[in-house]
Design a protein around this nucleic acid. Sequence first.
DNA 1: TTGAAAGCGCTACCAG
DNA 2: CTGGTAGCGCTTTCAA
Lengths: 345, 345
Amino acid sequence: MTELAKKRRAVSQVTAEDVARVLGVSQSTISRAFTASASIAEDTKRRVLKTANALGYRPNVIARSLITRRTNIVAVVMDNLTDPCNALFLDALSQRIQNCSCQTLLFIPAAGQDVEDILPTLLQYQVDAIVITSATLSSTMARTCALRETPVVLFNRYVPGLDIHAVSCDNEAGGRLVAEFLIKTSHVRPAYVSGLPDATTNIDRKRGFISRLDELGVTSWLIEEGGDYGHEAGYAAAKRLVGRRDRPDAIFFASDIMAFGGIEALREIGLRIPEDVSVIGFDDVPMAAWPSHGLTTIRQPVKEMAGEAIALVGLGSLESASPEPRTSFIPGTLVERTSTIDRRR
Amino acid sequence: MTELAKKRRAVSQVTAEDVARVLGVSQSTISRAFTASASIAEDTKRRVLKTANALGYRPNVIARSLITRRTNIVAVVMDNLTDPCNALFLDALSQRIQNCSCQTLLFIPAAGQDVEDILPTLLQYQVDAIVITSATLSSTMARTCALRETPVVLFNRYVPGLDIHAVSCDNEAGGRLVAEFLIKTSHVRPAYVSGLPDATTNIDRKRGFISRLDELGVTSWLIEEGGDYGHEAGYAAAKRLVGRRDRPDAIFFASDIMAFGGIEALREIGLRIPEDVSVIGFDDVPMAAWPSHGLTTIRQPVKEMAGEAIALVGLGSLESASPEPRTSFIPGTLVERTSTIDRRR
DNA sequence: TTGAAAGCGCTACCAG
DNA sequence: CTGGTAGCGCTTTCAA
């Protein structure tokens, strides 16, 4: 033991042993008082709890986890907290995790570092489950986790071929909702501004949108590549889009943040929203509700998604991590605000 | 050992013992190979690392922490991730924490739950340090932590009387910067819209602003109470403010988010920014840079603040948590954008 | 219901 | 430099 450790021990930590000595009982008894399932006399338990409290004793969950093999820690891997949408996710996830008497251990990959590099470190912490909201997982790594029986769930993304849990908003259905809404409100020339080209979120939103337009007999839609999900991307794409002769009368942006950029571009040009162009986003971040945006958008069911993710890794009910990997798609809802209009009126 | 534990053990975890057996060395040797300071033959170390890797062995940091009394876990208590400013803080803090080979354990108080309720749980995790960005700490709790030698630092807040580390932006200096800037650019009737009345952030920004105006001989300033730091609050306060006969020619909002609300209100009324009214915020959240806002604001030195917080709790350099409690104020900088104008021109 | 004892996986000391 | 040994604080058998 180092000097530091000795000193710490001396000053600080009250152990079960200490409580036992004071009460003249065995250390096991102290342990039992803090284990719900253990058999202990009601009276003994009360006495233990009382003096434990007086001495400031609380079980060391780290030591406990060595035996129980449960740390009550869930790892969340997330790459960009600055994105309001991610902040929403993390918030919902931690709440749910805390509801299961666990805590969130956060892993933010440094620039140029990917999940693969982080996973070994992460596993050293013996976490009970892993939620990955950034990037995805190689099948090798998935296997490593499976071998250790550490359940993993991808959040807001999925990999069709991979044997791993995943939870995502039903982005395709969301895209379809938008298509229906725009056609119902008599738009004739809708456009989609795409986000990160390879993200399933982007691909599915786009596919749902286009396929539903198709089903409804609309063929004159436009596609504009944003490049990423950012404000700049939305701004630039909107500028390009309205520069065309066949200007769209409605633009569906792959994310709210892009839509905000788009709104800015449109206003700069002098176009009115929604009179000249309707704008729709995706996510429903808090800012979408601000009157200046009044953004019609698809609300991601963040709480339900978080709940489902935690359920899949079997946190709520001990031991019941769903054995066969499942991908859950949770439907979002369209929130109508002032950035869209019914063109018949 | 429960059935679950047994099963897990059987399938998953490779221990130092396993590696030792394969190599025909002692388990201590395996441990040494993973301890930088331990003395071990270069060749032995290489062999250990190689087969450890082949077997998929990595030291169990939880077990290690039982002896070393360092978990390499830092608790961060934060109440509202949805606030972009908090997201910025958490992002910076985790980065810094990870740079010290530690990880962030997140604690989000549930509604109606305060830090006091959380602290016991938190301490059970034997974290190496605690960063509190929500609320503050009673002196009792501060003493509990001191007794356990778990360093604590308040972030973005401080309590003058309390014997505890704290890091904050120099909000007073920030307020003074704003006052100077507005007067230098020939504003004659500045206003301050306050945030949460009792927050040190709000009080200090206001005091700095007013006192510097005073020093500069300006006496015709206005104060409007926002009530909190939100968008709505800024919106409502701005409406009240410009409804007055003696309308201000510049408004300093206690936060960027409030300023966005204010901008919205002003535009709604038909006032131009900055021609009719200059607007200044505080924080410099990413949205402030969006052209639609172009918000002149005080940038909080988030990275420096995070660095200082981590330094104060002595994470970088083992054992060197600053013994006497210190409050660090880090100066912010004024970022000039398009929401303000020089009125002489 | 309780106490004694055996570890969980690891580090840190003590001999050699 | 290496192996043996004694724990870290706790849970969980096994007897009593």
